[in-house]
Amino acid sequence: MKVNWEGVYPAVTTKFTADDQLDLEMFETNIQAQLSAGVDGIILGGTLGEASSLMEDEKDTLVKTATEICNGQVPVVMNIAEQTTKGAILAAEKAQKNGASGLMMLPPMRYKADDRETVTYYKAVANSTDLPIMVYNNPVDYKIEVTLDMFEELIACENIRAVKESTRDISNITRMINRFGDRIKILSGVDTLALESMFMGAGGWVAGLVCAFPKETVAIYRLKKAGCYEEALEIYRWFLPLLELDINAKLVQNIKLAEVATGIGTEHVRAPRLPLYGDERERVLRIIEEGLATRPELPDYLNL
């Protein structure tokens, strides 16, 4: 299925049972909620998907299951977060075999590759597959920045099509558009900068709190796209305290707690992560409860 790299792409959480197995029933419940809300794709195995703690067979199961659930309605994108080029090529191959329509791809894990090594890594994987690739550019969390000069080299690979822009430098969107036009599709990767990024020219949003609030997230995107800026801003301003739960070291626990509150998830995480407790949990619950108490009535955003 073609990936357009526009619109709302949830970076879905991985659902676990109390005994640390994949919870495919709740996984389907959540993805069905995303589809009903009107999302444009599903991303698996990202930071929110607890990628570093997933077993290889679990990744295979998630891609196969998500592809079956989506059934051609939207593309399924698998994240690649590997320590070696060999491992990344194998992961891309398996993702395609299991039904993924595209890849999101981080730079090498653990080893802090320099610019030349990073470009070579991306090119090697891109040249090994015909799946379209979105570069995940998050130097804040992963310590390697894919610069504009590096993108100049990467676009020689036709299937490197998009960037998840998570540098936190919103002017980087303008720099990319000025230099590459629409050759590289830009999706905001930071919830608290999403609407601002779309106003600056990003065509999509790789979203986190969408996992718990899919309709509100899609409504913001659709309203902005339709030119209903005040309506989009009103929802976004309500959403901001919740969106700030995404820019936190415990974003997985935060968002899973929000999923519980909206009935489309559980708190189960994989160790060494543990569910929130004590004052920290109470603080996050207060934010979620305030959001639910003031949740806005949404317009008919799917028919704008």
Rank of each mutant, 00 (worst) to 15 (best):
V163D: 10
V163I: 14
K164D: 07
K164E: 08
E165G: 11
S166R: 11
T167I: 14
T167K: 13
R168V: 15
R168E: 15
R168K: 15
D169Y: 15
D169M: 12
D169N: 15
I170H: 13
I170S: 14
I170K: 10
S171W: 14
S171C: 14
S171R: 15
N172Q: 15
I173S: 13
I173H: 11
I173N: 12
I173C: 13
I173G: 13
I173A: 11
T174L: 14
T174K: 13
T174D: 15
T174Q: 15
R175T: 11
I177C: 07
N178S: 10
N178Q: 12
R179D: 02
R179V: 08
R179Y: 06
D182N: 09
D182L: 08
I184F: 10
I186W: 07
I186N: 03
I186D: 04
L187G: 03
S188A: 04
G189C: 02
G189K: 01
G189L: 05
D191P: 03
D191K: 00
T192A: 06
L193D: 02
L193Q: 14
A194E: 02
L195A: 06
L195D: 06
S197R: 06
S197Y: 10
S197L: 05
F199G: 07
G201V: 05
G201Y: 11
G203M: 07
A207I: 04
G208R: 09
C211F: 09
C211G: 08
A212K: 12
A212V: 12
A212E: 11
P214C: 12
E216K: 10
E216H: 13
T217V: 07
Y221E: 10
Y221K: 13
R222P: 07
K224C: 14
K224W: 15
K225R: 15
A226N: 11
G227F: 13
G227W: 13
G227T: 08
E230L: 14
E230G: 12
E230H: 14
A232R: 04
A232V: 10
A232M: 10
L233I: 13
E234P: 10
Y236W: 14
Y236P: 02
W238H: 06
F239A: 03
F239H: 05
L240F: 12
P241T: 10
L243P: 06
L243W: 08
L243T: 04
L243E: 10
E244H: 11
L245P: 03
L245A: 02
N248E: 11
A249K: 00
A249D: 03
A249Q: 00
K250L: 01
K250M: 01
K250D: 09
K250R: 02
L251R: 00
L251G: 01
V252D: 00
V252A: 00
N254W: 05
I255C: 00
E259I: 00
E259R: 00
T262R: 02
G263R: 05
G263V: 07
I264W: 01
I264V: 08
I264D: 00
G265L: 02
E267Q: 03
H268R: 00
A271H: 01
P272H: 01
R273G: 00
R273H: 05
L274E: 01
L276W: 10
L276E: 07
Y277P: 01
D279I: 09
D279R: 08
D279N: 13
R281L: 09
R281Y: 07
R283V: 08
V284I: 12
V284S: 06
L285E: 13
L285K: 10
